[in-house]
Amino acid sequence: MSPSPLPDLILEPLVRAALIEDLGTYGDITTRTVIPAGCTYAAQLNAREAGVVSGLQIAALAFRLVDPALKVTAHKTDGDAIRSGDLLMEISGNAASILSAERVALNFAGRLSGIATLTAAFVAKTAGTKTRITCTRKTTPGLRLVEKQAVLHGGGFNHRFSLSDAILIKDNHIAAAGGIRPVLRAVKAQASHMVRCEIEVDRLDQLAEVLDEGGADVVLLDNMTTQSLVKAVEMTAGRVTLEASGNMRLDRIAEVAATGVGYISSGALTHSAQTLDFGLDF
């Protein structure tokens, strides 16, 4: 089930900034030069390849911000599976307005649909297991919110949105603070009871130390072999949530999910997704 749409009020600053960037200091001079005043047209946003769509809400917002009088009719909803040739959206009204918003609308829809499509491919590999696919903070600066929404459209789950969401103790934190026990003791002494704590380990002896000390809700198993992941699941016996991360290629997801870890996180969902090909046709 796809998530509820985000409020346009939250999305508007992102879309407005993209439109200002594209329109430059003097607006769309090509359109102003060659399109007669008052010319109206109807355009179709079409898929040129199959996948999972995301970013249609943002594309529609781009057209409306340029010209509130444009009529935008959606034929697909974010999170829908689409085929090549599918009609996604119709836009009618002032031709100059449609042309001026076109590139920003397509950039958002293509980029976010690529993320949703790659996420869906990862999720498909977990079929028959309880493992969930989740993203990371390896997102495009300024676009984290919408890229993480695209992960949800693809059937995945979200990790932290920011450094303030939860405690995530990485290897550099452990090194700087003097070890696993000192960082976990600091968490138990200082963190709010409302804040969850995750700690990263890359060896089973570190996992044993975490389990002995206590204080972590989630353990991130970083760059472990499949055999080590199986052993980690046995060691924890459900006492903490386990997240596998590092080197999580699409062709490895099924075997990692079969180990019984609760989550598989992959930065590739957002930093390596290929843009889905869409076109706006008059």
Rank of each mutant, 00 (worst) to 15 (best):
A257Y: 00
Y26I: 13
A101S: 08
V151H: 04
T126Q: 02
A244I: 07
L106D: 04
A175M: 13
T117H: 03
R48S: 02
L269V: 05
R111D: 00
E12W: 05
G260M: 07
T259P: 01
G24Y: 01
N172M: 11
A50P: 06
L99G: 04
P36D: 13
T241D: 03
H193R: 12
V72R: 10
G85K: 09
V146C: 12
A244C: 02
R203V: 02
L168Q: 10
E12Q: 15
V230E: 12
Q227R: 12
I264D: 06
G51T: 08
V233T: 14
A268C: 03
A105F: 08
A232H: 10
N223Q: 02
R16Y: 11
A189F: 00
L220A: 08
M224L: 12
H271E: 12
C135Y: 06
R160Y: 01
I174L: 13
E200S: 09
A191I: 03
L14I: 12
V233G: 08
P5G: 06
T73M: 03
D22N: 13
V53W: 00
T236D: 12
G156Q: 07
A69C: 01
I133A: 09
S54V: 09
L145F: 10
A121C: 03
A176W: 13
A177E: 09
N223R: 11
D80L: 03
I98F: 03
D22K: 05
A116H: 06
P36E: 13
L87H: 02
G142E: 09
A150L: 02
E21W: 00
F161P: 01
D171A: 13
E234K: 12
R185A: 07
V151D: 05
A59M: 07
K76C: 15
I180Y: 00
I10Q: 15
Q274L: 11
V146W: 14
R203P: 01
L70W: 07
M89K: 04
M248W: 06
A150K: 08
A18L: 06
L163E: 07
T117F: 01
A258F: 02
V201D: 04
D222T: 14
G24D: 05
N172C: 10
G156Y: 03
T30A: 15
G79T: 10
S113Q: 09
G38N: 03
E90L: 10
A81C: 12
Q190P: 00
T25Q: 14
M224R: 10
A166N: 11
Q44L: 00
M248I: 12
R181Q: 11
A127L: 09
T31E: 10
